[in-house]
Amino acid sequence: MLRESANAQGQPINVPAVTRPLLGARLPLGDELLAFTDAIVLLNFDELPLARADLASAGGSGAVTRAAAVCANFEATNRVVDAVGVPVNKRFYDIGAELGVEIPDHLR
């Protein structure tokens, strides 16, 4: 979704930065979004307040609300597809490899 959204808007993106933030996302608010989503996904409650404040400072409170909503949607979707054992579509294997994420055999 992130790659397609960026492409649709003609915005360059560095997809591997999703799993390697030091590479830099090349998106508006990219670094702030990565820090915020990492704090949420990794349950880093020490970093979350700072990441939230940095995102709000750079993009406004609406950016925080939208980013939190996207995180919640992804978490919910992932739990549902994991629970029912939906396999990963083969067209996403390349993206997984680009991100350095190995797809478990039971999801292939």
Rank of each mutant, 00 (worst) to 15 (best):
G10P: 13
L34Y: 01
E75M: 15
Q11W: 09
P49M: 05
R26G: 08
A35F: 11
V64W: 03
F36Y: 01
C71L: 07
E47L: 04
A69G: 06
L22Y: 12
L43S: 14
T19Y: 04
A68E: 06
T65H: 11
T19F: 07
P12V: 12
F45E: 10
T77G: 10
D54F: 05
E32W: 01
L27G: 04
A39T: 04
G62M: 10
G30R: 01
L34S: 02
A63T: 11
G30I: 05
F36Q: 00
V70Q: 05
G59S: 11
G30S: 08
L50S: 11
N78G: 14
R26Q: 15
L43K: 11
F74D: 01
P21Q: 06
L27W: 02
G30F: 03
V80I: 13
T65I: 09
A72C: 13
L33Y: 08
T77I: 12
G30Y: 01
A51V: 10
E75G: 14
A58R: 00
L50M: 07
L42P: 07
N73G: 14
P49A: 01
A67C: 13
A72W: 08
L33S: 07
R52V: 10
L33V: 15
R20I: 12
N14V: 11
A17T: 09
N78Y: 14
G59Q: 11
V15W: 02
V64L: 10
D31I: 06
A17Q: 02
A69F: 08
G10W: 13
A35L: 09
A17L: 11
F45A: 04
A51W: 00
T77S: 12
P49Q: 00
N44G: 10
A35W: 05
L33D: 07
F36M: 03
G10M: 05
F74W: 02
P16S: 02
S57N: 12
F36K: 00
D31V: 10
V81N: 06
I13G: 00
D54A: 14
L42G: 11
V41E: 12
A58N: 01
A63G: 12
D38E: 05
T19P: 11
G24T: 09
I13E: 01
T37C: 02
S57T: 11
G24D: 03
V64C: 08
L22Q: 13
A39L: 03
V80H: 06
E47H: 12
L23D: 04
A53S: 03
A69K: 09
L55T: 02
Q11V: 15
D31L: 08
P28Y: 02
L55Y: 00
D46W: 09
E32F: 00
S57D: 13
F45T: 12
E47A: 14
